[in-house]
Design a protein around this nucleic acid. Structure first.
Lengths: 333, 333
DNA sequence: TAGTTTTGCACAATCGATTGTGCAATTTAA
DNA sequence: TTAAATTGCACAATCGATTGTGCAAAACTA
């Protein structure tokens, strides 16, 4: 059923039908009687305009591309949900791309989405390169979670520096001096900020930050597991581990448990990136909670500001430390 | 940059350019020399055809609509990931709709996706109604996870009956007679099949299935929590709880812990729907593991069979029981 | 009544690709 | 050398909407 057929059925021009159905009958002086007839027939015949044709004509698709590294990571799944919800409110849809933290896939995704003429892009980039996010990208783009230090892409992210600083301070105040940090993808901005926050806290409390072991290389459970195994084989085992995301924390937990050690009696564990089941783990896991909903919502809002030709904005949202039972107080006081 | 401009640059017709770029130069006898020139210029100018225009002309969008109830549920997040990956291999993209288990949103999503002329639909429906999945739906559709007993939509799902039967048998063999079951959305097929499997197992072992308490009404953590609270207030507390999905299980766990009870000493807990962190919970949670990857992959394969005009197929994939430490053996033997 | 304004709607171009068909130019066959 | 076959490419229609503009008919004004 096309608008043409509908018009024939009504014995009028497609022009008139189109104008009524797009709510422009006033503007083009279509009589109320005619408008009525059109609307009735349209709903009677279940007419829905072909959006492909409309998109071509209007040079606008009401579609946003969402590029994330891993939808099976609950952090991004939650983000995707909020984004979808916010966009739905604004009559836009989401084209989803999961890059698996692979740069080639990310580049390819950008190209595919642009060829499909999305109205805008929301990207949680791998982080190594940014050129492909600029070149030929003629639509608004907002970075989520990760951004680039030296390039002014608008972004929405957690204040990772702050979060890591708070988390590390917390550990230190509980008496920990030998703290290991297991990181995620090294070149991503959240990782770098968290590392800086970690180191700064150590320094501020007079601990030699260069001596602290920082290991690991991606955001996987596997990495948390392997890195922790390594740590546990060192001569001097750290008294606390700071895991830079939820999956690393789980891997760490598994390794510690397998080694027959107890958290927090033998070793403390603190995670960046809260999950709702953390309170049910053994022991309940302390963590830094990112404002996930706010990130998604703000990202969409920021994108819409750009779509409305407003100025780019930049957002670092504060995370919150949630104390549970995985950090032991070993201070001598 | 349009194909027309590219053609002007090359001083030839758009026809020729189009034919070369779509790999039809042989078919239309374009000389290799010309083809070369076209390809070079195209890559030099970073030309990418406008897919909206192509889609309109070809009546095909290489886009699949994925409708799921809750992307923040890791079950569906994992599913989404597999689906995206499989579709990417086949040069298709995913338009994502999260219905929040709301029927109106589901109906709306179907309409929006159809208006966008998706080539096919993958749907995990709410389950109450199915008419909107048939009416005006002129593209292949495959149901995932949930299906309709009395309507022959092709589907891919876990063998929920089998899984629940096995799980319940497991509990019974461990000596449990008073087993409570906390269900999800009552009218969804997985829920119904699981309930049937649960009841059949009870009967087969000579336990009065009508006496077993079945409570709860959706797949949320909240429901697991509230329902368990209710259970724990009964005169005779069940010796085991069978939670029909991962979120319900977490809620149950929380309620049990809060009540000061121990799993499995005071009460056993078994979950349908495995998650990778279950082994790290306190205690490690036994569960029925659904073949999530296989479901996603099979769903995409099934959809492509339909796209190739092959016959609809129906799949029930076997789940596996994973024994951990949340079920106590209380048999008197 | 004639001229002007307003009302109500349709014609045809346009968005950017793809493709059936036709027509020169070149090559081959006779 | 001429006719037939082949090669190489372009014209113009098409997909299904939206929209600037134009033109009758109706309503109003003088």
């Amino acid at each position: 059923m096309t608008i043409k057929e509908l018009a024939q059925e009504l014995d009028m021009s497609t022009t008139t039908v189109s104008r009524v159905l797009t709510g422009q009958e006033k503007k083009y002086r279509i009589s109320e009687k005619t408008a009525q007839r059109v609307r009735e027939m349209a709903s009677q015949l279940d007419f829905a305009p072909n959006l492909i044709a409309r998109n071509l004509r209007l040079q606008r698709t009401n579609t946003i591309g969402l590029i994330i590294p891993d939808i099976s990571n609950p952090f991004f799944a939650n983000l995707a949900r909020t984004v979808e919800e916010e966009l739905r409110k604004r009559n836009k849809m989401v084209l989803l791309c999961d890059t698996k933290d692979d740069l080639t896939t990310e580049k390819e995704s950008v190209e595919l989405l642009l060829a499909r003429k999305v109205d805008g892009l929301l990207v949680a980039p791998i982080g190594e390169k940014w050129e492909h996010l600029r070149k030929n990208v003629n639509v608004p783009l907002v970075l989520i979670d990760r951004y680039f230090e030296n390039h002014n892409f608008p972004y929405v992210t957690t204040d990772n520096y702050y979060g890591a600083y708070e988390a590390t301070s917390h550990l230190i105040l509980k008496g920990h001096q030998n703290i290991a940090c297991i990181q995620g993808l090294v070149h991503t901005s959240p990782n770098q900020s968290r590392i800086r926050g970690f180191q700064k806290a150590l320094e501020d409390y007079g601990i030699d930050s260069t001596a602290a072991s920082i290991l690991g290389d991606d955001y996987s459970v596997e990495n948390g597991y392997v890195s922790t195994k390594t740590l546990l084989q060192e001569e001097e085992i750290p008294t606390a581990i700071f895991a830079l995301n939820n999956q690393i924390a789980l891997g760490a937990m598994k390794a510690i448990t397998e080694a027959g050690l107890q958290i927090p009696e033998d070793i403390s564990l603190l995670s960046f990136d809260e999950q709702y089941y953390f309170e049910l783990l053994s022991p309940p896991l302390s963590s830094v909670k990112q404002p996930m909903q706010a990130i998604g919502k703000t990202a969409v809002e920021t994108l819409f500001e750009l779509l409305d030709d407003k100025k780019a904005t930049f957002h670092k949202l504060k995370p919150v430390l949630i104390e549970r039972a995985s950090v032991k107080n070993i201070s001598k006081l």
